[in-house]
């Protein structure tokens, strides 16, 4: 099937070569949206919002009818001069925090937002303590003659190999 596409593409190229002079007189296309700046704002906003009827898609990416309606609603509200925050409030009043892909920071989401960094600090601290304890334990073990030999072998072997 892909092969067919390739053929079709080649054929298309041939047609294109014939057609090219026409291209010069063609008109400049216009954006689908009446107001592209507003549209950009709408898309940026709806990318972080969840489509409610879909499995897991953003409002911006969904083709569902409700998503289209909500995009239109957002467009209208932005046009009416509402701020991004007001639009988001409008949606959370109706659908709850579920519509937000970026959960708001509140006590219920502290664990979510701070968890990773607490985990990082905890793990780093744990590793540091482990190193200290380990150093102490290793220092406590006196080296036997056999172990000394091994250490020397290690030192020799360990020059350049990664």
């Amino acid at each position: 099937m892909r092969l067919n596409m390739k053929l079709a593409q080649r054929a298309g190229l041939a047609i294109f070569a014939l057609w090219f002079p026409l291209a010069a007189v063609a008109g400049e296309a216009v954006p689908v949206a009446e107001d592209p700046v507003l549209e950009q704002r709408m898309i940026a906003l709806s990318e972080d919002l969840r489509c409610l009827v879909c499995q897991n898609e953003s409002l911006a990416g969904s083709r569902a009818e409700l998503a289209q309606d909500l995009r239109q609603e957002i467009r209208d509200q932005l046009r009416a001069g509402k701020s991004d925050k007001e639009v988001i409030n409008y949606l959370t009043q109706r659908y709850g925090d579920f519509v937000l892909y970026k959960p708001p920071l509140k006590p219920l989401t502290w664990l979510l937002w701070f968890g990773p960094f607490v985990l990082l600090i905890g793990a780093a601290g744990g590793f540091y303590l482990y190193l200290k304890r380990r150093g102490a334990r290793l220092a406590g073990e006196s080296l036997s003659a056999e172990e000394k030999q091994r250490v020397e072998a290690l030192l020799r072997n360990n020059g350049n190999e990664s």
């Binding site: 409610l52 009827v53 609603e73 109706r94 659908y95």
Partner: peptide
């Protein structure tokens, strides 16, 4: 007709 009132009620399906 246009589903606006339903949006106010948070209808999603």
């Amino acid at each position: 007709l246009d589903g606006r009132a339903a949006i106010d009620y948070g209808v999603y399906g």
